[in-house]
Nucleic acid binder design. Structure first.
Lengths: 300, 300
DNA sequence: ACTAATCCATTCATTTTATGAATGAATAAA
DNA sequence: TTTATTCATTCATAAAATGAATGGATTAGT
């Protein structure tokens, strides 16, 4: 394949990418900090190189053609890849090694990242790039070497190895507990309850497991991330059900008090996911190391 | 992720790509049809953007640093991807659909391609890009939608579905047969034998299955592709063991005469491979269609 | 040790390419 | 209509990439 290599310029591709996303040259121009004129001409150039109209000009406004949409999808992916490649190279600095890691936001912030320096110290010249991402995405496309996954064995294209089960506990700030005079687990339900939007059933399940009817337990404040629930709990806003892994420090320091263990029948737990087929030794070593970090399931 | 998007120019990346491949700016310049000067400066620019030396200047000559090699690998892949994307878009023309197909060279030329028009006619606006490739490569990386694979269930990252077993026959050109007066299968071994380099054991296995000692049967002419073996057989150069799928026409027209069936204990056969995880309906439909094409195992 | 050849770095003048500003044409909304 | 919006085009300008020439450093050959 002698590269007669008629690749369109990056300028061209970026203009097309933005235009396709927005289906508007003016908007794309704004996004790119260019004028509409520039974008218009760049897109036209791409159309000439490809030999096919990519947008249908409809009076004012443009719409992607079929060919345009197909190309846009591909090009967006390719550019994103290229950006990541460059980004990783910058992060790697002088060393040849970067490990690209993804994990759910709160898990990353509270459990994973604090432990990373130890791993980094074991490997000379290693740098890391951490992405917070919740759940199944394409490891290959996004160029992630290792991802922490919470859920089941349900990640196609990923090599999963179990990390640890989730251990849930009901907690609250000490002064809140004093105020409500909690003595037995069921008392917890009298306090204001804090919820994670994605898992609103937790309190109900907990209540049921204690013999409570479990009705109307979804009221209370809702948050879309564990970190927010944690902040709220620390602020004494209510009781929360949280994974122990995310509040190790708070439990140790007594900023949050464990009120009851929560058992859930959902068979979800933490996994380490690596891209299938790809065989990066560093990723394997990181996986092994991660699993070792979790041997001491509780430290309180 | 607000794209502060400091992507190096494509010119820069291509210069780096070529330089990395050759570990020489002058050679890279030649490959790209540029001057050494241009390449030198482009590479330098990339090094400045990344913030790390990518080549070690060693007197005359340059050598990739660790970081350089890592980046080169990634960038080569990314550019190749981009090229394919553009290439496929050009091939697709006005229609939104391209199917990228890979198959072993001779199989593609003799069996697959002749049948493709029929499939294409079933799908409006469909175009195809065909690559001849022998054996396990990364479907995702190379952006192949469907690949024909000969071998076993041994393609990681690919969804395999069986197409058909390989049916081998010993054949020769009619005049050669006359000349050697072949009457029973064992007589075949008296003729000059033609071999496929990758499978030199075929004649020996054949001979053993007939009770012959099977020694010294690897001599004769060797070729690295089935198509060459076929040409040689047609030219009366000797007898060959060939898959029926590759010589359907010749058997029908009597240009090659079937001398004996060959049974092999190797459990290899043809498969259709599609990238795991990706779920392209067109690829599925092509797979199904392919398997239907093979229902009539023999047409003679 | 000298010479010739090879290769990379740098500079400067030049060409090529991308861009902005201005303007026109088409369309949709008021 | 009138007005506002949006894309297309043109032209002058700014920015970027390039080639030619040159210098320095290194290796190979004698």
């Amino acid at each position: 394949m002698a590269h007669a290599d008629r690749l369109p310029t990056l300028a061209v591709l970026r203009c097309f990418e933005a235009s396709a996303k927005q289906e508007s040259f003016t908007a794309a121009a704004e996004e790119l900090g260019l004028t509409q004129s520039a974008v218009s001409r760049q897109v036209k150039e791409l159309e000439e190189q490809i030999g096919t109209p990519l947008f249908r000009r409809e009076g004012r406004g443009v719409r992607l053609t079929g060919a345009g949409r197909a190309l846009a999808d591909a090009v967006c992916g390719d550019l994103e890849r290229l950006r990541r490649t460059i980004y990783h190279a910058i992060a790697a600095g002088t060393g040849p090694q970067v490990l690209a890691i993804a994990a759910p936001p709160t898990f990353a912030a509270r459990w994973l990242v604090p432990r990373l320096p130890k791993f980094r110290d074991l490997h000379d010249g290693l740098e890391m790039v951490v992405y917070s991402r919740s759940e199944p995405f394409d490891l290959y496309k996004e160029q992630i070497d290792v991802a922490v996954h919470f859920g089941g064995w349900d990640w196609p294209g990923a090599q999963l190895s179990p990390l640890c089960p989730e251990t849930l506990v009901a907690v609250a700030a000490p002064d809140l507990i004093t105020r409500y005079g909690v003595s037995k687990p069921l008392d917890v339900l009298d306090m204001p309850l804090l919820h994670l939007s994605a898992r609103t059933h937790l309190w109900e399940e907990f209540a049921k497991s204690l013999g409570h009817n479990g009705l109307a337990l979804r009221q209370g404040s809702h948050f879309d991330q564990f970190s927010l629930v944690i902040s709220a709990a620390l602020a004494g806003m209510g009781a929360a059900i949280l994974p122990t892994y995310l509040i190790e420090r708070e439990l140790n320091d007594g900023d949050l008090i464990r009120l009851a263990d929560v058992t859930t029948d959902a068979v979800k737990s933490y996994f380490v996911a690596t891209p299938m087929g790809k065989n990066l030794p560093l990723a394997a070593s990181f996986t092994a190391w991660l699993r070792k970090q979790v041997i001491q399931p509780r430290m309180d």
